[in-house]
Design a protein around this nucleic acid. Structure first.
Length: 636
RNA sequence: GGGCCCGUAGCUCAGCCAGGACAGAGCGCCGGCCCUCUAAGCCGGUGGCCGUGGGUUCGAAUCCCACCGGGCCCGCCA
């Protein structure tokens, strides 16, 4: 409500000026000038108008500026025509500061509601329950969790889902190892259960398939039992899978993620949802039985482009993997009713229950799940093709039921390992390649827990250096928060459609554009406020006018764009923007911090004004960090 | 063969969707700054025919086309 006020005022003033010059209807854009010394906003109307008027842009700029200067609202300061054909506008610094400080310091202020209660489900993480999370999964989790936080902040009702593929090949591999190869169900002492199953059992079993082909047959039987839900493999799975899942969740929670509900593939398989979806798709003519050719006997989905088709039901009557995604997506949007019961699965750190679907007797009282207006699925780009079919199918189901429902695949590129890091792990890197893809089956990956542990011990050194007398418990806790901040920021700042080449040495950096830099800056602000004993709450208006030094003004301006930045980030489903904006803010704060004293400022009013500025910064940075799932720390 | 994504400073990346005023950060490298608000910081310097070639436009890193280089996807696997 602050920079936006300025921008809207500029738009109104320019419209009025154009009107008075007989130029109504000239299209122009409002931009940010390349150099702040030119102005805070620039309008290119003169360039556009010069085509119509056949007059040099510079001259038109002068006329427009003249027309505006006469009567302008207080938020608009100077209006400066530029010979290049722009009219530049300066916000009135005092007015902008007043509005910004007030909004930022008001705990209930700056509420944004573009979601208006629209229900959105965000599915993320969804790691096969047979191994520990590797850093690729971390990218998924961080993207999804940050997006969920962001959407919730701007007024959407968000439901976070985590899909558990408990009937797939990957789980079956682990069960094969335990059932037929004598691998113990319990891990060796000190080994986390998900890491044990993934690093040892899963990898070993996959090594053996080639030498012992009969194991592949065993696996087939295991999968059949899992789908049916009976037999010795199924009984073993009932113990092993939840145990792995809980170990994975420890890592997820460690990273700050929260979920509302676990959706189990086995439940979806037995829910009858697929049969219902299939029925509707067939009636709609989207699915057809192929009569001849290679695909004879298969039911295929025809979509979304001409000639593209995807087999959903094999000629032997079994369904393919993609056919499980469709009923799940339909459930998310409430298109086929709700066949599930629900019960509590776990208590999450920081409060809040994690629920799970159930097919045999849930709890009588439970929140309403599913039935979202928009379903967002966070999965890597390799799934794009399948996701297009899912989107097509489920949106078709929506149309058939006369409801407007949307399905969105939020894709992102995978995380690969740098040559240096891969070689350090003993992974062979082909000549000429700068990176290598991770592979769970081959054991070629970097676990999230290991990265966090390395980061935490690195951070602990630094924290200890600065706080020699602090309690170990405090140092440990702060170092952990810094480790999470570092990893989350790294995963967030990169554009989702760019491959991340993970390098361990690089990842352990906590200087420069990193999460810890933001946390450090936040702590600086916190300490000033702590020592000052509080923020002035009165006469903010007069105090704000004292913030006239360039570095103060620059910081205020950046902060004044908070709501616009959030809305933009939400509209683009781009939590990355939060990372970029936060870094700019921290940068501006540090520049201010180095240039001006706060506590030692001799002029009392100026001191109070700066305190208010620091308080406003701390408040906004704290909110941004929280949205990114990075813990704001008052002291580090 | 078809489709999607990436190519900007030695390295890692912003900026591109909604085209404009000298192309920005971080890391690295060189040189400065702790006089009690945390130097995980700050200031200055170094460094780029924005992959190539066409086109559209008064104007292109940004839009369109072609090409080159790299990645991914195209299974009755999951």
């Amino acid at each position: 409500m602050t920079f936006r006020v300025f921008r809207d005022s500029v738009r109104r003033s320019v419209d009025a000026a154009l009107d008075s010059m007989g130029l109504r209807g000239v299209e122009y854009s409002i931009e940010v000038p390349p150099d702040p010394s030119l102005g805070d906003l620039a309008v290119n109307a003169p360039l556009r108008a010069s085509r119509v008027l056949r007059e040099p842009p510079g001259a038109i700029a002068e006329r427009i500026a003249g027309a505006i200067s006469e009567s302008r609202p207080p938020i608009i300061g100077r209006v400066v025509p530029h010979p290049s054909g722009y009219v530049n506008f300066f916000a009135d610094a005092a007015e902008l500061a007043r509005l910004t400080l007030r909004a930022a310091l008001d705990p209930g202020g700056w509420r944004i509601d573009v979601g208006r209660g629209t229900k959105v489900s965000v599915e993320h993480t969804s790691v096969n329950p047979n191994k520990a999370l590797h850093i690729g999964h971390a990218r998924n989790l961080v993207l999804g969790d940050s997006l969920a936080r962001l959407l919730s902040e701007v007024g959407y009702r968000v439901e976070v889902l985590n899909y558990v593929d408990d009937t797939g090949v990957q789980v079956a591999d682990v069960l094969v190892g335990m059932l037929y190869l004598g691998m113990p169900e319990d891990p060796p002492p000190g080994k986390k259960y998900d890491a044990y199953c993934g690093d040892e059992v899963y990898v070993r079993v996959n090594e053996l398939y080639e030498a012992r082909p009969e194991l592949v047959e065993r696996r087939r039987e295991v999968i059949a039992q899992l789908e049916r839900g009976s037999g010795p493999a199924s009984e073993l799975a009932a113990r092993v899978v939840p145990r792995i899942l809980r170990a994975q969740l420890e890592t997820c929670w460690r990273l700050g993620a929260k979920y509302d509900l676990l959706n189990w593939e086995s439940h979806i398989l037995r829910s009858g949802l697929w049969e219902r979806a299939f029925e509707v798709l067939r009636e709609a003519g989207a699915v057809r039985l192929v009569e001849e050719g290679e695909l004879a006997g298969c039911w295929v989905l025809q979509a979304p482009e001409e000639g593209e088709e995807k087999v959903l039901v094999r000629s032997d009557g079994t369904t393919v993997y993609a056919a499980k995604d469709i009923p799940y997506a339909a459930w998310k949007l409430g298109l086929l009713g709700d066949p599930f019961q629900y019960r509590r699965f776990a208590k999450q750190p920081g409060g809040g229950d994690l629920w799970t679907t159930d097919l045999g007797g849930g709890e009588a009282e439970h929140p309403t799940f599913g039935s979202s207006d928009l379903a967002i699925t966070v999965i890597d780009v390799r799934q794009s093709r399948v996701q297009r079919f899912v989107k097509y199918a489920v949106e078709l189901l929506g149309e058939r039921s006369g409801r407007s429902k949307r399905y969105l695949h939020l894709g992102y590129e995978v995380v690969a390992l740098s040559r240096r890091t891969a070689e350090a792990l003993g992974i062979e890197v082909p000549e000429g390649r700068q990176f290598v893809h991770m592979s769970g089956r081959r054991g070629a990956y970097v676990n999230v827990d290991d990265v966090l542990n390395a980061l935490a011990s690195r951070a602990a050194e630094e924290v200890r250096k600065r706080n020699p007398d602090a309690r170990d418990e405090w140092v440990r806790r702060v170092a952990e928060a810094i480790a999470v901040g570092a990893l989350r920021y790294q995963m967030l700042r990169q554009d989702p459609n760019k491959l991340i080449i993970f390098d361990m040495e690089d990842a352990l950096r906590i200087e420069g554009e990193t999460g810890p830099y933001l946390q450090y800056t936040y702590a600086r602000a916190s300490r000033i406020l702590e020592k000052a004993g509080g923020i002035p709450s009165e006469s903010l208006g007069e105090l704000a006018a004292l913030l006239s030094a360039p570095k103060e003004v620059k910081l205020v301006k950046l902060m004044s764009k908070y709501d616009m930045e959030l809305e933009e980030a939400a509209a683009e489903l781009s939590p990355k923007r939060l990372a970029t904006y936060s870094y700019e803010l921290a940068d501006a704060f540090n520049a201010f911090y180095e240039a001006h004293r706060v506590l030692q400022e001799p002029d009392e009013n100026r001191r109070l004004a700066r305190l208010a500025l620091v308080g406003a910064f701390r408040s906004l940075m704290g909110r941004l960090l929280t949205l990114m799932g990075i813990e704001p720390l008052d002291r580090i």
